[in-house]
Amino acid sequence: MSSENFRQLKPFFSILLIIATLFSIVFLQMEERRMGYSVLKLTREHKKVWEEKRVKEIALAKITRPQLLDSVAQQKFTLKKVQANQIIHLSGALTEEVDKVVNKGIAKKDL
């Protein structure tokens, strides 16, 4: 290619470069907008899941509160409250061994 042909094509190449730059800018702006919508959608989904978790934790706390468990045990399963004469007191060698285990810090799974 001669230098004269290259000079004639210079304006064409410069316009082509400008158009390519403008297209790339538009493309990058569209990608930025699309990513913003994706982030917004994920943020809304995260808030929704977090709210469901909080509601379930509250429901679990209500279900497992001691007063409710006590009343269910007395009504549905006909259980009665523990009386003083029903409590078993351990004494002797077994209690000393348990005290040793507790003092040494051995876990229950090791027993």
Results as ranks from 00 to 15, higher is better:
residue 42 L to P: 06
residue 59 A to Y: 06
residue 28 L to W: 03
residue 104 K to N: 10
residue 24 S to A: 05
residue 45 E to A: 01
residue 2 S to C: 01
residue 103 N to L: 11
residue 86 Q to N: 04
residue 60 L to S: 11
residue 20 A to C: 01
residue 97 E to N: 13
residue 7 R to H: 01
residue 26 V to T: 07
residue 37 Y to T: 15
residue 77 F to C: 02
residue 86 Q to H: 06
residue 81 K to E: 07
residue 111 L to P: 02
residue 4 E to W: 01
residue 76 K to H: 13
residue 61 A to E: 03
residue 52 E to H: 08
residue 95 T to D: 11
residue 67 Q to N: 08
residue 106 I to F: 14
residue 84 A to N: 10
residue 7 R to M: 06
residue 106 I to C: 12
residue 66 P to Y: 03
residue 96 E to D: 14
residue 18 I to W: 10
residue 38 S to T: 15
residue 29 Q to E: 09
residue 35 M to T: 15
residue 11 P to M: 01
residue 53 K to L: 10
residue 11 P to K: 02
residue 63 I to C: 02
residue 100 K to P: 00
residue 73 A to R: 06
residue 13 F to N: 03
residue 108 K to V: 15
residue 77 F to T: 03
residue 88 I to M: 06
residue 78 T to Y: 13
residue 2 S to P: 04
residue 98 V to F: 09
residue 57 E to I: 07
residue 47 K to E: 11
residue 52 E to G: 04
residue 79 L to S: 05
residue 59 A to G: 05
residue 99 D to A: 14
residue 60 L to F: 06
residue 17 L to G: 10
residue 99 D to G: 10
residue 93 A to P: 12
residue 4 E to A: 02
residue 108 K to W: 12
residue 50 W to N: 14
residue 86 Q to V: 05
residue 93 A to Q: 14
residue 44 R to C: 09
residue 34 R to A: 12
residue 41 K to Q: 10
residue 21 T to P: 00
residue 99 D to S: 15
residue 83 Q to T: 09
residue 66 P to K: 01
residue 49 V to S: 03
residue 76 K to M: 13
residue 97 E to M: 11
residue 77 F to M: 06
residue 81 K to Y: 03
residue 13 F to Y: 00
residue 93 A to N: 15
residue 68 L to Q: 05
residue 82 V to Y: 00
residue 4 E to V: 05
residue 30 M to T: 09
residue 29 Q to I: 11
residue 7 R to C: 02
residue 49 V to L: 06
residue 11 P to H: 02
residue 83 Q to H: 09
residue 42 L to E: 14
residue 96 E to Y: 13
residue 47 K to P: 03
residue 73 A to Q: 02
residue 10 K to P: 01
residue 72 V to G: 06
residue 87 I to C: 00
residue 15 I to K: 11
residue 104 K to T: 14
residue 5 N to E: 06
